[in-house]
Amino acid sequence: MNAIDHPLVAAYLDSVARETAGLPAERRAELLADLREHIEVSEARDDEAVRAVLAELGEPRTVAASALAEEGAPATAVTAVPTGPLAGRQAARIIAVLPALGGLLILGSPFAGALVLAIGLALLWKTPLWDARHKRIGTATALAVPVLLLLGGLFLAGGWVGPVELLVIGVFAIGVPVSGALVLTRALRV
C-alpha cells in the first residue's frame, strides 16, 4: 500500500485542512499538495514508518500555524479562525448544500424554498471556508433554479416549448444546483 492511502495520512491531511480554514483556498491547496508529496516521496510502507514521517512533519496545528503566519495572519487568527462557529466541518457540509437545497425546494414549495435559499446564501457568504470564487459558483448554481423556473414558465405561457424542452429545463434545474453543492463540498477537502 502506498503511504498516501494510509488512513493515518488521510486523517493527518484532513486535520491540517481543518486548521488552515483561514488560509486562501489556493494557498491551502498548495500546502496540502506539498505535504502529500512529501509523504509520497518518503515511501513509507508500514504503519510504523508512516507514523514516523507524520511525527517528523509535526502537529497539524503547528504546521497550520506556520502557514497562517507566513500569510501574515495576526497571531490571534491562528486560533480564532478554525474554531469559529461557521468554520466547523459539520457546519461546512450543511452550508455547502443549503443554497442548492433551497433552490430545489422552490420546485415544491416556493416560500420555504426561497427562505432556505436566502439563509443558505447568507451563511455561505459569511463563512471563511471558501474563497470568493467558490462563493460565486455556489450562489450562481443555487439561483439557477428560480431563474430556469421563471424562464420555463414564460416559455410555456408563450407556447414556445413542448414537453421535451420542459424536461430538459427540469433536468438542468435539478442538475445545476446539485453540481454546485458538489463543487463546494469538494473544495472543502482540496
Binding site: 491540517v16 517528523e56 509535526g58
Partner: peptide
C-alpha cells in the same frame, strides 16, 4: 522542530 512548517 516540525519539518512540515518549512513548506509554507
Amino acid at each position: 522542530t516540525s519539518q512540515g512548517t518549512i513548506y509554507p
